[in-house]
């Protein structure tokens, strides 16, 4: 099977790699996150409609933002608990 649009294929690989890098720090562990990430991408492997691929990439971008926000909040809350005295 040859990909119809190589540019889109590259974009998918790029966002997959970025997510893979991001979940190294996942609170439940890399071993938890990596298979799930892989499964999520593999479940979409058969999609060949360009519009659908684009919306899939958008969803991946959204997940990336969510994970970044999760990390930020987790750290912010931990530090707040340690350093801010709440009466």
């Amino acid at each position: 099977m040859t990909p119809q649009n190589p540019a889109l294929r590259l974009q998918v690989i790029k966002i997959y790699k970025e997510l893979l890098f991001l979940v190294r720090e996942y609170p439940l562990g890399y071993d938890y996150a990596r298979p799930r990430l892989h499964k999520a991408f593999m479940s979409q492997a058969g999609v060949d409609d360009e519009e659908k691929i684009r919306s899939g990439i958008k969803r991946a971008e959204f997940v990336k933002k969510e994970i970044e926000a999760l990390y930020y909040l987790k750290r912010y809350r931990a530090l707040r608990q340690r350093y801010d005295k709440i009466d």
Binding site: L22, Y71, Y72
Partner: peptide, 13 residues
């Protein structure tokens, strides 16, 4: 201090 800003994540690229 903690509430100054929200640091960005250093992305792979």
């Amino acid at each position: 201090d903690l509430r100054l800003n929200e640091p960005r994540y250093a992305s792979l690229p």
